[in-house]
Amino acid sequence: MWISPYKYVLSLGHLCSDINQSILSAVLPFLIATYHYDYTTATMLVTVSNVFGAFVQPFIGMLSDKKNKLLHMTLGVLLASGGMAVTGFISNFFGLCIAVIISGIGVAMFHPQAAKLVNSVSSKNAKGKGMSIFSFGGKVGFTLGQVYTAFLMNLFGMKGTILFLIPGIVFGIVCSFFNKDFENLDVLEVEKKEKVKSEQKDD
């Protein structure tokens, strides 16, 4: 029996996106030790990332509702990974704030379009299952971030942050094989909703 891969691709994207949120928290002790920041200053990086990510997410969601923007998923994960990848090369606090803001915005860009597609690819009687598979990827990513950061820091030092790009690149490559399918699925979902609205007006 053929199993649709779409939910699992989106779950992988969720993993590659949310791993960066975990990485940010995990990299703080290394930033403190390397650049001699105090704990309050270091934790401000998490606050800045979350605030900016939360602020832009509703606008990205509204844009996603108005027009199909599959690029938001891939670009979002790449920005999330890229922002974290440069943290080991920036000692200036303002520069670090810019890097984590870019990462936070990237995470925010991924979620609305991905969540919409999860709903589209899940059958009517398996919406909960589809969302559970999607959420599972995010939880795994958040868990792996701590281990991944410790491994890279111990092996390469702060310059190892450049390898935070790997999850973003992996998802970008995988998603490129499914972009056309996702685009068609999203178009079909929009057409189906428009048809339902038209039928309701006729009634």
Rank of each mutant, 00 (worst) to 15 (best):
T161W: 01
E189K: 13
V121Y: 02
V86N: 01
K116T: 15
N119H: 15
G106C: 01
K195N: 15
S91I: 03
D38V: 07
F110A: 03
L78E: 05
V118F: 03
A42I: 11
I169C: 02
I102G: 01
N184T: 14
T149K: 00
K139H: 14
N154P: 13
D203K: 12
K192M: 07
V48Y: 01
S132A: 12
Q21C: 09
N154W: 00
G145R: 07
S81A: 11
K195F: 14
A108Q: 05
E199W: 09
S135I: 14
G128Y: 08
Y8G: 03
L63H: 10
L79C: 13
G138A: 06
V170R: 02
G104T: 04
N20Q: 10
C97V: 14
V107T: 06
V27M: 00
A85L: 04
G172V: 05
M153I: 09
M44T: 15
G157D: 08
G145F: 03
H14A: 03
A80V: 13
S4A: 12
G138V: 03
S91E: 11
G137N: 10
G88C: 06
I105F: 00
S122K: 08
S25F: 07
G172M: 03
S17W: 05
G106Y: 01
E199F: 08
H72K: 08
L155T: 15
L96E: 02
G104E: 02
Q146I: 11
A126P: 12
T87C: 00
N125R: 05
N184V: 12
C97L: 05
E194N: 13
G172D: 03
H14T: 09
A85S: 09
I105P: 02
S64V: 14
Y35I: 13
L24Y: 04
M62N: 12
L163W: 04
L144F: 13
